[in-house]
């Protein structure tokens, strides 16, 4: 049996809102040691999502036996919208479940709402992702990266990221013209999450689909910072930290035709 209680429903709501436009169906793997893990790849095989909600993200977590919950995220999203952000949220499943029970508890009122979501058998490709060495890593405010991704998409369907020791440059060239945004590393002592940190083994220039970057920044509400790890001619890793766990996106680059 699985029983996981979140202190606030908002965490799972935000996680599902972050991924449901990229993948519609996915398996939630549940175990006592790892909590909930998900690996899902979008239909175009360009964007991969790796989610880990550790048991530490729950107020209470028990999973007697390893379970796989096949979920339609659009349907789960509909059910999660029934609860308030501040409600306790408990998810419950039997050992061989055909449905997931979702329970909201209002902390102030005596109101408990229960929903049952039908589960599905989902065949999914699982990819092996080895721990990669990266040429460089940038940590920056999540909202700032989101603004760049959204703004630059209006200029071009591709966004180039150029990292050097002294700066990170976002470059877009489109039909109406071109634009670039240059950020330099700095440390904000009072608000550390406002800092921009660059770690560099070697400079990197990579180009990504603006559409996919805009899917990724849907996770902005989850974390105040985003870490972007880039390697020449390889998929990029975008990581949003959860209170205990992470949401990672792996995005395949575009190449000069």
């Amino acid at each position: 049996m699985l029983e996981g209680k979140f202190e606030e429903a908002s965490l799972l709501k935000k996680v599902i809102e972050s991924i449901k436009d990229s993948v519609k169906l996915c398996n939630f793997n549940c175990s006592q040691s790892k909590g909930i893990t998900v690996q899902a790849i979008d239909d175009s095989r360009v964007l991969l999502i790796a989610l880990k909600i550790d048991s530490g993200s729950f107020q209470e977590f028990r999973c007697d036996r390893d379970l796989v919950l096949g979920l339609d995220l659009e349907s789960l999203s509909k059910i999660l919208k029934q609860g308030n952000n501040e409600d306790y949220l408990t998810i419950i499943a039997e050992d061989s479940p055909d449905s997931l029970l979702v329970v909201f508890e209002d902390k102030k009122k005596d109101r408990i709402s229960e929903f049952s979501l039908k589960l599905m058998d989902i065949d999914s490709d699982v990819l092996t992702i080895d721990d990669m060495e990266h040429d460089c890593s940038i940590t920056m405010p999540a909202y700032e990266f989101a603004k760049i991704a959204r703004d630059m998409k209006t200029l071009s369907e591709s966004l180039q990221i150029i990292i050097t020791k002294d700066s990170v440059k976002f470059n877009a060239e489109g039909q109406i013209g071109s634009g670039s945004i240059i950020l330099k590393p700095h440390t904000d002592m009072e608000k550390p999450d406002e800092s921009i940190k660059i770690e560099l083994n070697q400079p990197v220039v990579l180009t990504f689909g603006a559409k996919y970057l805009n899917d990724i920044v849907k996770a902005t509400a989850l974390s105040s910072t985003v870490t972007i790890k880039l390697t020449d001619k390889a998929p990029a890793l975008f990581e949003y930290r959860l209170p205990s766990g992470y949401l990672r996106y792996y995005l395949a680059p575009k190449f000069d035709d």
Binding site: S44, R45, V46, D125, L127, S158, Y250, K254, F255
Partner: peptide, 14 residues
């Protein structure tokens, strides 16, 4: 101008 690559070219399917 740019061609989108696939993750399958980089990661091995199990």
């Amino acid at each position: 101008k740019y061609k989108q690559s696939s993750l399958l070219a980089f990661f091995n399917a199990k």
